[in-house]
Simulated scan of single mutants.
Amino acid sequence: MKLLLVLDDPRRAQSFVDYLADIGFKCELTLDDEHNVSIWLVDESQWLTAEPEVKRFIAEPLHPRYQDAAWRQGDTQVHFAKGQSQPGLFRDVLSRTGPVNMLVLLACVIVYGFSRLGLPMFELLAFPPQLSLLLGLDFWRGFTPALLHFSLMHLVFNLFWWWYLSSMVERRRGHGKLLLLLLVAALLPNVMQFLTSGPYFGGLSGVVYALLAYVWLSGRLNPMGGIGLPDGMAVIMVVWLVLGFTGVLGPVANLAHLGGGLIGLLQAWLDRAKPVR
């Protein structure tokens, strides 16, 4: 057998294998101890004709042709070579959750839980009433509004997108890059929102917009970098942003969302030529 490619996403690997099967290449998947998936070409004599398909997949891994092939198979399971099995859902999720990712998840859940118990979390963590206070001992309150959520739906929506996007960034760009995006995309958009509406806001959505913009543009600028999002997903988030400014969605921290998105785009452009892990 001939090794074609190594990926860290079992489902994306399976969709590529399904596509290759559609066009006449039989492949197998194996899983190593670090949960990386290797794609093996069974018939090595087909390597020269399979190689262009590998390069095309690397250039545009999110192209609909691969998901279409997976749907035609009618089987959503990942199939590894004999003697191997797909990790369980919990183990798979845990393996994708780095320390920065997990720390923010736990912090948001704990803060929300304490607030439901009646503890004054908003008073403790909200943006200070005067911007000048950030230059003193309350500097940390420029970030902590990102940990505040005002309903279970608000919390679940933000944490899902935080986990999904930050897992890609932390695995491919490192803990430091994710931490940088987290801090900058919380602080600066929070200042923007404060100048517009005062200190009565909270949520991780500004950071989520920064990560979404970063992952999407990084995928466009560096298709081989291992992270990216379909254009359709980016369009949906832009539409959601526009709807927020129209007032249809009610009170929304629109400036925090816009500021986060701009920060993510800028950081992706700055990182466009940097090597990935």
Rank of each mutant, 00 (worst) to 15 (best):
G228I: 05
G259K: 01
G226H: 07
G260A: 03
D271T: 10
E123S: 14
T196N: 12
P87Y: 07
A50R: 05
I58M: 14
Y209V: 03
W161A: 10
Y200T: 15
Y214P: 00
V100F: 07
N190I: 00
F143P: 00
L178M: 07
F127Q: 01
L133S: 11
P128C: 08
V235I: 14
L229C: 04
L106I: 14
N101R: 02
W216G: 01
R272V: 09
A107R: 03
Q130S: 14
R65I: 15
L182W: 01
G261Y: 01
G228A: 07
S115R: 07
W269P: 00
T97G: 03
D92F: 09
Q86H: 14
D22A: 10
S166E: 01
D22W: 06
G203E: 05
L94G: 05
G225V: 08
V252Q: 15
D43I: 09
G174C: 06
L180T: 12
A146Y: 00
G88A: 11
G83Q: 08
L195C: 10
V93T: 11
P87F: 06
I110W: 13
S167Y: 04
F16E: 02
G250R: 09
P10I: 05
S45A: 14
I227C: 02
V169T: 06
S132K: 13
P10E: 04
T97P: 01
S167V: 03
L131M: 13
H257T: 00
T144Q: 02
G259D: 02
Q77M: 12
L31A: 04
D43F: 09
R91S: 15
V191S: 00
S197L: 14
P128H: 07
A81E: 13
S132R: 13
R56F: 02
F122N: 10
Y66T: 07
V191D: 00
V78K: 07
G83V: 09
G176D: 05
L270G: 02
F139K: 04
L266H: 06
E34R: 13
W47M: 14
R171V: 04
S38V: 06
P64Q: 10
Y66V: 03
A234F: 15
F57L: 08
G206W: 01
D75L: 10
G198D: 05
G142W: 00
L270M: 14
P120G: 11
S218K: 08
P99N: 04
I58C: 10
G244L: 08
K55N: 15
R12Y: 02
E170F: 07
L4C: 08
L134C: 08
R11D: 13
R72G: 07
L125G: 02
W161N: 09
L178G: 00
